[in-house]
Design a protein around this nucleic acid. Structure first.
Length: 596
DNA sequence: AATTGTTGCACC
DNA sequence: AAACGGTGCAACAATT
């Protein structure tokens, strides 16, 4: 048994590393002594679905003691880890969904067997304070939380030790994981400290979760939700490789063609704004639009306004290259041996709790104009793709809680809210619609003008008409802003506490609506899980869920799933409607387009 | 050469 | 009286 120590805030942490079979009884004895332990794994990477993915180390820790087990050496170490996981009543892991994927694929313990005893410090931390570091919050990553709540020196040392390790092995922090020697001392120390930090964070953060959140059962709710999204991750999405490859090469041709045009004007790289700004200025074109940091902007908007053949070529070359790399190559490179791709579904991520999807399937940002990108994702054999989305979710949510009579009446009696707003201002329906959505974001007339196609007097008139027509919205927004100014927070109906930045009190309304709507989707996912729909769910996209249903039963299943998703908030129904496509996800969009 | 910041762009 | 909310990622540029 190798022994290492680590000092955190003057306290000594003992890290014991199992080296041989003879060390296992002591490890097992440690496991038996504890009711709750921190847990973490070190692996060859993050791609737990890959053929060559391996579990290297498994670590268990209390607040002052950790055991590191070299699972990569095979039996009997793997069995010891398996037994420990089954024996400990409670586990604490940071972003535990990942470790459960690892344990399932590498040790054969189904996620379902462990999920109910795992506390996830990422979820707990979010309920305490959801803000990212760049929002001047604690962040959600383990290292960030350690820095903010526990000990900045430790956070710095952990980070530093990985940088040093990467240097020692002449590689990057990203690529070090499969290369580092299993018994490298700084690797073992880093590995051993992780479960210790996780359980320390858990003990510190749990009492900081607002009483209200606990009373409304949010902690358990978020853990159950994370489990269902982990099931979606495990299922993955079948990729139409032929389709994706065809589109990728088609886009490469397109990209090359327009790059040639750009080059004919002496510009090497259409993605370099610096080169382009110089070139356009030399041509006598005056650029005025600025970026957020005050530099000259050269976005699509600016390029459209330039009447020079190079401007159009730049737009086309950039678009082809972005689409090829971001959507098609990403999916092709990330696929597994069965041609499935897996998203990383972060079930509780944004400040408002909104989920994000990162990694191989950036599903939340797929172009929606046609099925061009989404066509590469297929329902299972003999299945069809189904999308079920909530109708007018955020505006209905607003109406339900602000209780404005006109707005409520519109939704209760199937009237056209956008037209009502437009009529009140004597404006076009589309301007009414934009004003309605702008209210949800908390924007003023300037934002309406910035959106284009509307000048100042009309923008002002439409927003005045909005305020006059739905006075309840303004009253409600004021109430939330005042509360935010007083307390720094807005409380959602599920008992979630959302911090509002000082001086930005107007955002309170948006946070209330956005977070509450996210919770309606979250509820839908949990109810669908209970009803046995988990294996058919593919992805959540804010107000929409994507499914693969057996062709034979698609109509009934879609109808039932939509019924399960529908939910009354404060008495007002948020309806859900299903769209059934052919086999590819994109076919849903293409069928819709051909209808109109 | 690797990491970090900036910009632009895809979406709800 | 004035306030446009929430994301992730590719590529380039600047920094270390």
């Amino acid at each position: 048994m190798k022994q290492l120590t680590y000092r955190i805030k003057g306290q000594s942490v003992r890290i014991r590393v199992v080296e041989t079979e003879r060390d296992l009884p002591e490890f097992e004895e440690f496991i038996w002594r504890h009711e709750i332990l921190g847990f973490d794994t070190e692996t060859t990477g993050l791609d737990w679905w890959s053929e060559d993915f391996r579990l290297r180390l498994a670590q268990f820790g209390s607040e002052s003691e950790a055991y590191v087990v070299p699972a990569d050496l095979g039996q009997p170490f793997r069995g010891a880890v398996r037994n420990a996981l089954e024996r400990v009543p409670w586990l604490v892991a940071h972003n535990g969904g990942f470790d459960l994927h690892v344990v399932e694929t590498c040790l054969g313990i189904p996620m379902e067997d462990l999920a109910s005893k795992v506390w996830d410090t990422k979820l707990i931390a979010h309920l305490v304070d959801p803000r990212a570091v760049k929002e001047r919050g604690p962040g959600l990553k383990l290292e960030e939380l350690v820095k903010f709540y526990l000990d900045p020196v430790t956070a710095e040392e952990v980070k530093g030790s990985m940088t040093a390790l990467a240097q020692k092995y002449k590689t990057t922090k990203e690529k070090i994981w499969p290369l580092v020697e299993l018994f490298d001392e700084s690797y073992l120390r880093y590995a051993g400290m992780d479960p210790v930090l996780a359980i320390r964070l858990f003990k510190l953060l749990y009492p900081l979760v607002p009483i209200r959140s606990k009373a409304q059962g949010l902690i358990g709710w978020e853990h159950r939700l994370a489990h269902v999204t982990a099931i979606m991750e495990r299922t993955g999405y079948l990729l139409d490789v032929g389709y994706a490859e065809k589109r990728a090469s088609e886009l490469l041709l397109e990209q090359t063609k327009w790059e040639e045009v750009v080059k004919s004007y002496g510009i090497e790289n259409p993605n370099s704004n610096a080169q382009l700004i110089t070139a356009f200025t030399d041509l006598g074109i005056v650029l005025t639009k600025k970026t957020k940091k005050g530099n000259l902007a050269l976005d699509d908007d600016v390029l459209q306004s330039i009447s020079h053949p190079m401007a159009e070529a730049v737009v086309r070359a950039r678009k082809a290259s972005k689409w090829r790399a971001t959507w098609f190559l990403k999916a092709l490179e990330g696929r597994d041996a069965e041609n499935r791709v897996r998203a990383s579904i972060n079930s509780l991520q944004a400040r408002t709790g909104r989920m994000t999807i990162s990694g191989t399937i950036a599903a939340q940002t797929f172009p929606k104009g046609s099925g061009y990108v989404r066509n590469m994702f297929l329902a299972e054999e003999d299945h069809v793709s189904v999308s079920i989305d909530f109708g007018n979710m955020e505006l209905r949510f607003l109406a339900a809680y602000c209780r404005d009579p006109t707005m409520l009446d519109a939704f209760l009696n199937g009237k056209d809210l956008h037209q009502i707003t437009a009529d009140a201002a004597g404006a076009a329906r589309n301007d009414g619609k934009r004003a309605n959505f702008l209210t949800v974001f908390g924007g003023g007339w300037q934002a309406l003008v910035a959106g284009g196609g509307i000048d100042e007097p009309i923008a002002k008139r439409v927003l005045e008409a909005f305020a006059r027509t739905y006075p309840g919205v303004g009253v409600f927004a004021k109430k939330l802003s005042a509360e935010a100014r007083r307390t720094g927070y807005v409380w959602t109906v599920t008992g979630r506490r959302v911090p509002v930045d000082p001086g930005k009190w107007f955002r309170a309304l948006n946070y209330f609506i956005q977070s509450g709507s996210r919770d309606v989707t979250a509820r839908a996912i949990l109810e669908l899980h209970k009803a046995g729909y988990s294996e058919f769910m593919r992805l959540p996209i804010h107000d929409e869920l994507i499914f693969s249903f057996p062709k034979k039963h698609a109509v009934e299943m879609a109808r039932e799933a939509a019924r399960i998703m529908e939910f009354r908030v404060n008495g007002l129904l948020i309806p859900a409607e299903a769209e059934i496509g052919h086999r590819s996800w994109g076919s849903i969009l293409d069928m819709e387009a051909s209808k109109h």
